[in-house]
Design a protein around this nucleic acid. Structure first.
Lengths: 206, 206
DNA sequence: ACAAAAAAATGAACAATGTTCATTTTTGAG
DNA sequence: CTCAAAAATGAACATTGTTCATTTTTTTGT
């Protein structure tokens, strides 16, 4: 019966990761503890460290799961939109909807800072690039004259601005906006960002 | 010699807070430890808990200090600008400059989530209101037709969008923009947000 | 000025948690 | 079937937040 070891390895790391995701979903990243992960997965503490270097490594994997789910949610939201502005709007609302519906996972994704030396794994960067590509494509449609570097910069700007808007809304750091006002503002933001060429010329008064 | 106790109390809580601020500045919020605060302040661990309920309480105080400094920096940057758009731009760049120059304090300000039950102290909200007032005033000048609630919502939107742009840039979560491209994008963002009335009418398609 | 009470300060102790590793249990190869 | 390799365990250690009995300092009443 060869192959049992491999199966065990895979099952263990999978179950541990699933348990970690559940922990974060339920109690937030600050309550993610090795012993609790082990307990929920049905293993002992030691096994956690057999499959993951440390808790930071697990958090990164949890964040990968979150990113995959986000990508999925966004893909669905954008799928049937042919108009680029409409697509950007759908994207922004999907982003917000995901953050709202997966608050703790989403917070973990953006609030976790890794210790001094380590940097974000390429896998994460790649996931983000995929997300940015959707924005970039829509912006280019709306704005065919943009040079590649400009498009790239603008894409990041748009993402960052919407990300900030969503963050402030979701985390309720300040008084949040009510449903309708929120939607109006989000739409305003997206339109303001999306179509710079439609703007009146800048004021000449210095 | 009455009054020694009061002086001691004040000195102790001040020194402890100063030590905490230094700890965060140097090593970041995740390395803020009660024993280290006590050591740097010249007290024992117990005294930390005599003057502050727990580390969360200290972090809040540290964040208050940061907010005060931010307010100061912004006030200076905005002081001599009479043109509202120029003022908004200066505000945004000052915000970024502060975040960049006080990275760890700034990260502590926005990455610290308090445990489930507790909420942000009114003092913090007030500090933020002061910041938002500067934005609101400029927006109103640019856009006198805005009703109070609209102005309020728009103010928060503008703050949140710039905040997001600054956050993404400062935290280098994705590839950051270089100096000049950054400044261009920031200016674009501020202008796009500031003058909605100058925009072309929304597309009627759909 | 002195003694007792109140306040300030201490640091040992406890609990929770990240992490390691010697030991035990399970699996694979010959 | 035997034994080496892998998987799994859980005791043990270090760090850290937090508490509290004890000690030191200050105030108050006489």
């Amino acid at each position: 019966m060869a192959g049992v070891q491999k199966a065990k390895r895979e099952e263990a790391s999978r179950k541990l990761l699933e348990a970690a995701v559940m922990c974060v979903e339920e109690k937030g990243i600050d309550s993610l503890h090795a012993r609790e992960i082990a307990r929920q997965a049905g293993y002992s503490v030691g096994s956690v460290y057999k499959y993951y270097d440390d808790l930071d490594a697990i958090i990164m994997q949890v964040n990968s799961v979150t990113l995959a789910r986000l990508k999925q949610a966004i893909g669905v939201a954008v799928a049937d939109k042919s108009d680029p502005l409409e697509r950007l709007n759908a994207l922004a609302f999907a982003y917000y909807g995901f953050a709202q519906a997966n608050r703790k996972l989403w917070e973990a994704l953006f609030s976790h800072r890794l210790p001094e030396g380590r940097s974000i794994p390429d896998e994460h960067r790649q996931e983000n690039v995929a997300l940015l590509a959707v924005i970039g494509a829509a912006l280019l449609e709306l704005n065919p004259a943009l040079a590649p570097e400009e498009l790239d910069a603008r894409t990041r700007t748009c993402f960052a601005a919407v990300h900030g808007f969503v963050t402030v809304s979701v985390e309720r750091r300040f008084v949040g906006l009510t449903g309708e006002a929120f939607a109006d503002e989000m739409t305003f933001l997206v339109e303001a960002l999306a179509s710079p060429q439609a703007r009146a010329p800048a004021l000449s008064s210095s």
